[in-house]
Design a protein around this nucleic acid. Structure first.
Lengths: 315, 315
DNA sequence: ATCACCTGTGTAAACGTTTACAGATAATTT
DNA sequence: AAATTATCTGTAAACGTTTACACAGGTGAT
């Protein structure tokens, strides 16, 4: 591998001068700078990032934490992050936490061991003592006190779900709750509940675990008592739709279903899913930009991205 | 951050001894070793991976190249790789190449700059001069001469698709081709064609680009002339199903459709998709194991994983 | 002519590890 | 008892960068 030393020898200056010429840090005469750059191009010199990271104790790697990359929401987020990262000459290390606080801590430790420049996390166990680490951090789709975060307008999204069902004539609505640890799901619930109360529409809520039991064929069939179902995300909605269709319950005639996310697949399920679209890719790329700003010591504000309703055949 | 130096001071030995004690390399008296480990645990010492990578010119990071993580095939592969990696105390850097050789080269360069231990790639432009780099490499779902690879049994998979349609009574079959640069798609095509010829069933092939034109509403509607459609992957099958359903063409009565991959979603589309299942997750985790073996200098053979047909409502 | 300052360069230390080498002691062989 | 070998430890160099510091020469102000 060609190093800064080789360049120094080639040009006939010291390594310090080469480093300064390459990074335009400190002084370097125009002539030397030109010769260094020429030699670097000619010998195809690429700086060793590891050495750089060791010296500056800051690599150009950002750590990204997701519950499970297999959940189709996250690849899009990651793609957004990765594209932004590569534009800025950064790389992305990913970690799957499975909502497990142990794993989460382990990855944070790993990120530290790798001198990562910062962390974007879509999972955050507040109870942990991660806080000790002062690395720049942006939470994605999760809001936690004293941390910068970016999320879609979950409250509005919940409201859109509810208003849409109500305006389509649903009179008894079931709201399926998402993972209770996450602010995003809770805010969707709040938004929906508030809207339904304003409309004067009757509704009930169902913990996610109960839904799973129902889908497995055990437990009560909740769907019979309702004519509208609000799902915490699209993947849940797919399962609900499958359950209803398998029982020959006409959707949307007897029951209307609305999801949240607008994943690519939502137009392929049957019936095609009405859902709230959030700008998943942009959430990722913006999160990266915010992280860079944070790392540069700039003041950064938490961000909320707009959402909109996408109407399809399930309502 | 607590370093090896701190441990040395704490225990009252040199850093060399600490290093040897921690890594069980070279000699270290049982007593010293015990004291070092105790101090490491007490002070919560974690080795700095960057320093280690610089010294040994080999980090515990592997680079993973995929065309686009947004394609639902890849998150599963990546999850397989990542799980295997973390078990072995390795990390994963991902790169999206978009089938673009420039990006591919760029990422390979980046992996080199980061002293990556090896590369797993689901995309490989043979024409490039990447070969100069002698880093361990495992190709995933791509076969290229002189490289170790792992893939599903694409030929058999293609055969299963064809045999199934034929045995269900299809008499004029359309095979939609996948990306022609990739051996996996070509082998599926070969397997299907060979099976159909053995059956004496008529078939035709369609370049992917033509399909896209048809889906966009432009160009000829190919589906009318056929009663069986073999898709190169599930995502393509989703699009075909949507196209057919939108035109009220009864599936599977008039046209039967079979996919390839068995993605999680294939049971949610309408009608639920008959497809060939390949062990996507295992492809990833095995690829990692092969990479480790390769890095350890062991002899490694390319691997082909078995596939099986999953019958659902689209046939 | 003196002083201050700016520009350009080299020397050397530092980042946190691993490891070749040498020296010292202990254990085993002859 | 001497010679060999095995075990243990420390010193110092190395990995490829960045950067504090020192020094030299040039420019401009006083």
């Amino acid at each position: 591998m060609v190093t800064i030393k080789d360049l120094a020898k080639e040009v006939g200056v010291s390594v310090a001068t080469v480093s300064r010429a390459l990074n335009s840090s400190g002084y370097a005469s125009p002539d030397v700078k030109r010769r260094v750059l020429e030699a670097a191009a000619r010998l195809n010199y690429k700086p060793n990032e590891v050495a750089r990271a060791l010296n500056t104790s800051r690599s150009n790697v950002v750590g990204v934490l997701v519950p499970d990359i297999t959940n189709p929401y996250f690849p899009k987020v990651i793609r957004g992050i990765e594209d932004a990262a590569i534009r800025n000459n950064y790389r992305v290390i990913i970690g799957n936490t499975d909502h497990d606080m142990e794993k989460e801590s382990k990855y944070l430790e790993i990120f530290r061991q790798n001198n990562c420049a910062g962390i974007i996390s879509a999972t955050w166990s507040v109870s942990g003592e991660h806080h000790a680490d002062s690395r720049p951090l942006v939470l994605l789709d999760r809001v936690v006190e004293n941390h910068i975060s970016i999320e879609s307008d979950n409250f509005k999204g919940g409201r859109l779900q509810a208003e849409h069902l109500a305006s389509e004539g649903a009179e008894r609505i079931l709201i399926i709750k998402g993972h209770e640890d996450y602010s995003s799901f809770n805010n969707r619930l709040l938004g929906a509940a508030e809207a339904l109360e304003a409309y004067g529409t009757a509704y009930d809520t169902l913990p996610y675990a109960h839904l799973e039991r129902m889908l497995d064929g055990a437990g009560e069939d909740f769907t019979l008592k309702f004519d509208g179902i609000i799902c915490p995300n699209d993947v849940t909605a797919y399962k609900v739709l499958k359950f209803l269709v398998a029982r020959n319950i006409p959707v949307p005639e007897q029951v209307k279903v609305v999801g949240y996310d607008n994943l690519d697949f939502s137009e392929y399920v049957h019936p095609a899913l009405t859902t709230v679209e959030q700008p998943i890719y942009d959430l990722g790329s913006n999160a990266f930009d915010m992280l860079m700003a944070l790392a540069a010591g700039e003041a950064v504000e938490s961000r909320i991205m707009d959402v909109k309703l996408i109407r399809r055949q399930s309502t």
